[in-house]
Amino acid sequence: MQLYDGRGSQEVELPKMNLSPVYKLRSGPVELHLLEKAPASKRDVPADAPHVAVTEEMKDFILLVAQKSEKIDADVQANESGNAQSDESAEAGDGGKILTLMLIEVDPRKFKPGGLLWVNLTENRIKGTLGDEEFTLDAGSQTVVSDPIKGGGSFPVKLSFSIPGDDQLRPLSETKWIHYPKGRIVQFVMEEQGSVVPRLLGVADNR
């Protein structure tokens, strides 16, 4: 796939359920389009091509590329880009499938080594404990948890979720996670096709 910025394009990898290599963008406001092939000019970009707007102030982001059915459920692919952020999304048909783009803000001043960047892509509210700390993640929101424990090792995780219009908490996960003080993890909460229970997906951010 090609990521086109209005002046030129670069080929990008879209690993399934993982982050791609970092891609650098030119400075200034940019409108990014995801295309099957590089266009000869901006006039050759299909009007319904997936696109997002990047402002001049944006410095770092994760570009989430989702392949969805008409009901908005399906495979999610994470593609990480350098130099920007936003929340705009767009959809386009691609061989009978729908691709959407979403920019997820990454603030390096908050998302430091040892941290967890939580991104909730669902309408569910998440609540529980990470280690000894209380944790709440509203629907469609994101937050950074800094060092759930001091040093390395495992820590207990107990999470529940509620569905829209119902505050009753339902069990989501009760387990132990390994904490890597020198690493960063992007933790997605995603829709699970055919289930009301959301899915957790953690990927390492090794930039």
Rank of each mutant, 00 (worst) to 15 (best):
D132S: 15
D167C: 02
L64Q: 06
E11T: 14
D94I: 13
F155R: 07
N79Y: 01
L121H: 06
D94T: 12
I178D: 14
N120S: 10
L172Y: 06
A66N: 05
A204G: 06
G151A: 08
L101K: 08
S162E: 00
A92K: 13
T136C: 09
D132R: 15
G28E: 07
T100F: 06
L14G: 04
G131S: 13
Q85A: 05
G153A: 04
L34R: 02
G131C: 10
E70N: 08
I185S: 00
V157G: 03
L116R: 00
V189I: 14
E57P: 03
E105C: 06
A90S: 14
D87C: 12
P15C: 10
V12T: 06
K150R: 14
I72E: 12
P156M: 10
T55H: 09
L201Y: 05
L130D: 01
P181M: 15
E192K: 15
Q193H: 04
A53N: 11
N206L: 13
T143L: 08
V106P: 03
Q67S: 06
A66M: 13
D147G: 11
S69G: 15
F161R: 05
L19A: 04
D166R: 10
E133Y: 09
D167T: 07
S9P: 00
A40K: 10
S69E: 13
I126W: 00
P171F: 04
A92E: 06
A90K: 10
L169M: 13
G183T: 01
V12M: 00
V30K: 09
M58N: 11
T122E: 07
G152H: 05
P39Y: 02
G128N: 03
V54D: 07
E123P: 01
D48W: 05
I126V: 10
K110S: 08
S41W: 03
P108C: 11
